[in-house]
Protein backbone atom coordinates (compact mmCIF):
# COMPACT_ATOMS: atom_id res chain seq x y z
CA UNK A 1 0.00 0.00 0.00
CA UNK A 2 2.93 2.21 -0.63
CA UNK A 3 1.62 3.94 -3.73
CA UNK A 4 0.11 7.34 -2.97
CA UNK A 5 -3.17 6.54 -4.66
CA UNK A 6 -3.66 3.41 -2.57
CA UNK A 7 -2.70 5.22 0.57
CA UNK A 8 -5.13 8.06 0.14
CA UNK A 9 -7.82 5.53 -0.73
CA UNK A 10 -7.07 3.93 2.62
CA UNK A 11 -7.39 7.30 4.34
CA UNK A 12 -10.66 7.89 2.53
CA UNK A 13 -12.02 4.48 3.49
CA UNK A 14 -11.28 5.02 7.14
CA UNK A 15 -13.12 8.30 7.02
CA UNK A 16 -10.11 10.42 7.91
CA UNK A 17 -10.33 12.79 5.01
CA UNK A 18 -12.58 15.79 4.81
CA UNK A 19 -14.32 17.91 2.24
CA UNK A 20 -12.11 20.75 0.99
CA UNK A 21 -12.98 23.99 2.76
CA UNK A 22 -11.37 26.04 0.00
CA UNK A 23 -10.97 25.45 -3.67
CA UNK A 24 -7.25 26.16 -3.82
CA UNK A 25 -5.68 23.44 -5.91
CA UNK A 26 -2.41 21.83 -4.88
CA UNK A 27 0.17 20.72 -7.39
CA UNK A 28 3.64 19.25 -7.22
CA UNK A 29 2.30 16.31 -5.22
CA UNK A 30 1.04 12.93 -6.35
CA UNK A 31 -2.04 13.11 -4.18
CA UNK A 32 -3.39 15.58 -1.69
CA UNK A 33 -6.16 15.31 0.82
CA UNK A 34 -7.82 17.45 3.45
CA UNK A 35 -7.72 15.74 6.81
CA UNK A 36 -9.77 16.62 9.85
CA UNK A 37 -7.53 17.68 12.75
CA UNK A 38 -8.77 14.87 14.97
CA UNK A 39 -7.62 12.26 12.46
CA UNK A 40 -4.25 13.84 11.76
CA UNK A 41 -2.23 11.67 14.10
CA UNK A 42 -3.79 8.46 12.81
CA UNK A 43 -3.19 9.53 9.24
CA UNK A 44 0.44 10.38 10.00
CA UNK A 45 0.93 6.98 11.64
CA UNK A 46 -0.44 5.27 8.55
CA UNK A 47 1.92 7.30 6.37
CA UNK A 48 4.88 6.48 8.54
CA UNK A 49 4.10 2.78 8.47
CA UNK A 50 3.86 2.93 4.71
CA UNK A 51 7.40 4.29 4.56
CA UNK A 52 6.85 8.00 4.11
CA UNK A 53 8.90 10.68 5.81
CA UNK A 54 7.74 14.04 7.05
CA UNK A 55 8.98 16.56 4.59
CA UNK A 56 7.55 19.92 5.49
CA UNK A 57 4.88 21.80 7.35
CA UNK A 58 3.58 25.08 6.03
CA UNK A 59 1.12 27.28 7.77
CA UNK A 60 -0.91 29.69 5.66
CA UNK A 61 -2.89 32.53 7.17
CA UNK A 62 -6.04 32.33 5.06
CA UNK A 63 -7.64 35.47 6.50
CA UNK A 64 -10.85 33.58 6.99
CA UNK A 65 -13.60 35.54 8.79
CA UNK A 66 -13.42 33.02 11.62
CA UNK A 67 -9.65 33.28 11.59
CA UNK A 68 -8.51 30.05 10.07
CA UNK A 69 -5.13 28.66 9.23
CA UNK A 70 -4.38 26.14 6.60
CA UNK A 71 -1.65 23.69 7.49
CA UNK A 72 -0.03 21.97 4.55
CA UNK A 73 2.05 18.94 5.36
CA UNK A 74 3.99 17.06 2.74
CA UNK A 75 5.22 13.52 3.03
CA UNK A 76 7.55 11.85 0.57
CA UNK A 77 9.23 8.52 0.01
CA UNK A 78 12.82 7.54 -0.56
CA UNK A 79 12.21 5.03 -3.31
CA UNK A 80 9.59 6.50 -5.59
CA UNK A 81 8.38 9.88 -6.83
CA UNK A 82 5.47 9.88 -4.43
CA UNK A 83 4.52 12.94 -2.46
CA UNK A 84 1.37 13.22 -0.45
CA UNK A 85 0.02 16.56 0.60
CA UNK A 86 -2.03 16.56 3.76
CA UNK A 87 -3.98 19.73 4.39
CA UNK A 88 -5.65 20.67 7.61
CA UNK A 89 -8.06 23.54 8.16
CA UNK A 90 -7.93 24.84 11.66
CA UNK A 91 -9.83 27.75 13.19
CA UNK A 92 -7.80 30.14 15.31
CA UNK A 93 -7.33 29.17 18.95
CA UNK A 94 -8.27 25.56 18.29
CA UNK A 95 -5.31 23.34 19.10
CA UNK A 96 -4.16 20.89 16.46
CA UNK A 97 -2.91 17.51 17.66
CA UNK A 98 0.87 17.47 17.61
CA UNK A 99 2.70 14.98 15.44
CA UNK A 100 5.84 15.16 17.57
CA UNK A 101 5.10 11.67 18.87
CA UNK A 102 5.10 10.23 15.37
CA UNK A 103 7.81 12.14 13.55
CA UNK A 104 10.75 13.68 15.37
CA UNK A 105 11.06 16.66 13.06
CA UNK A 106 7.44 17.64 13.68
CA UNK A 107 8.57 19.07 16.99
CA UNK A 108 10.59 21.84 15.38
CA UNK A 109 8.15 22.46 12.57
CA UNK A 110 5.31 22.89 15.02
CA UNK A 111 7.30 25.20 17.24
CA UNK A 112 7.94 27.30 14.18
CA UNK A 113 4.26 27.42 13.23
CA UNK A 114 3.43 28.36 16.80
CA UNK A 115 5.92 31.22 17.09
CA UNK A 116 5.33 32.64 13.63
CA UNK A 117 1.55 32.24 13.47
CA UNK A 118 0.29 31.34 16.90
CA UNK A 119 -1.11 27.94 15.96
CA UNK A 120 -1.54 25.88 19.11
CA UNK A 121 -0.54 22.25 19.14
CA UNK A 122 -1.92 19.93 21.78
CA UNK A 123 0.40 17.31 23.18
CA UNK A 124 3.56 19.08 22.03
CA UNK A 125 6.39 18.45 24.49
CA UNK A 126 7.91 21.91 24.37
CA UNK A 127 6.03 24.63 22.56
CA UNK A 128 8.66 27.35 22.87
CA UNK A 129 10.29 29.85 20.53
CA UNK A 130 12.56 28.29 17.97
CA UNK A 131 13.77 30.97 15.58
CA UNK A 132 12.75 34.16 17.33
CA UNK A 133 14.27 35.36 20.58
CA UNK A 134 12.61 33.92 23.66
CA UNK A 135 9.75 36.03 24.81
CA UNK A 136 8.87 37.54 21.43
CA UNK A 137 5.32 38.74 21.69
CA UNK A 138 4.34 39.24 18.08
CA UNK A 139 3.52 36.67 15.39
CA UNK A 140 5.41 38.00 12.41
CA UNK A 141 4.00 35.85 9.64
CA UNK A 142 0.40 36.73 10.28
CA UNK A 143 -1.05 38.84 7.51
CA UNK A 144 -2.17 41.34 10.11
CA UNK A 145 1.41 41.89 11.31
CA UNK A 146 2.85 45.14 10.03
CA UNK A 147 5.84 46.06 12.15
CA UNK A 148 7.51 44.96 15.37
CA UNK A 149 7.54 47.28 18.37
CA UNK A 150 10.27 49.94 18.03
CA UNK A 151 13.61 48.76 19.33
CA UNK A 152 17.21 49.87 19.47
CA UNK A 153 17.92 47.56 16.57
CA UNK A 154 15.98 49.37 13.91
CA UNK A 155 15.79 52.88 12.61
CA UNK A 156 12.33 53.45 13.96
CA UNK A 157 13.70 55.33 16.97
CA UNK A 158 15.93 57.67 15.02
CA UNK A 159 14.18 58.27 11.73
CA UNK A 160 10.64 59.41 11.13
CA UNK A 161 8.37 56.61 10.04
CA UNK A 162 8.87 56.27 6.32
CA UNK A 163 5.92 55.84 4.03
CA UNK A 164 5.46 52.36 2.69
CA UNK A 165 8.26 52.31 0.15
CA UNK A 166 7.32 48.92 -1.12
CA UNK A 167 8.95 49.11 -4.49
CA UNK A 168 6.85 49.75 -7.50
CA UNK A 169 7.37 46.72 -9.69
CA UNK A 170 7.92 48.87 -12.75
CA UNK A 171 10.63 51.08 -11.41
CA UNK A 172 12.70 48.73 -9.32
CA UNK A 173 13.68 45.27 -9.31
Amino acid sequence: MAAPAELVRLLDERGWTAEPPTAHPMSGVSESRWVLPEHLVAAARALKEAGYFYESLTCVDRLDPQGAFELVLTFARWDAPARIGVRVWTPKDTPVPSLAGVFGIAEWNEREAWELFGVEFSGHPKLRWLLLPDGTEFRPLLKSFTAPPPSIYDDSLTAPASPDDRTDPDTHG
Partner: peptide, 20 residues
Protein backbone atom coordinates in the same frame (compact mmCIF):
# COMPACT_ATOMS: atom_id res chain seq x y z
CA UNK B 1 22.50 49.07 7.24
CA UNK B 2 20.59 45.82 7.22
CA UNK B 3 21.30 45.52 3.53
CA UNK B 4 19.04 43.27 1.54
CA UNK B 5 16.91 42.41 4.54
CA UNK B 6 15.80 45.89 5.43
CA UNK B 7 12.28 46.83 4.51
CA UNK B 8 9.44 48.56 6.29
CA UNK B 9 8.08 46.24 8.92
CA UNK B 10 11.16 44.06 9.00
CA UNK B 11 11.28 42.22 12.32
CA UNK B 12 14.26 39.92 12.37
CA UNK B 13 17.54 41.80 12.04
CA UNK B 14 19.51 44.63 13.55
CA UNK B 15 19.68 47.29 10.87
CA UNK B 16 23.40 47.72 10.85
CA UNK B 17 26.14 46.93 13.31
CA UNK B 18 26.36 50.53 14.37
CA UNK B 19 23.13 50.09 16.25
CA UNK B 20 25.01 48.03 18.79
Amino acid sequence: SGGPFKYPGEYAIAEGAEKI
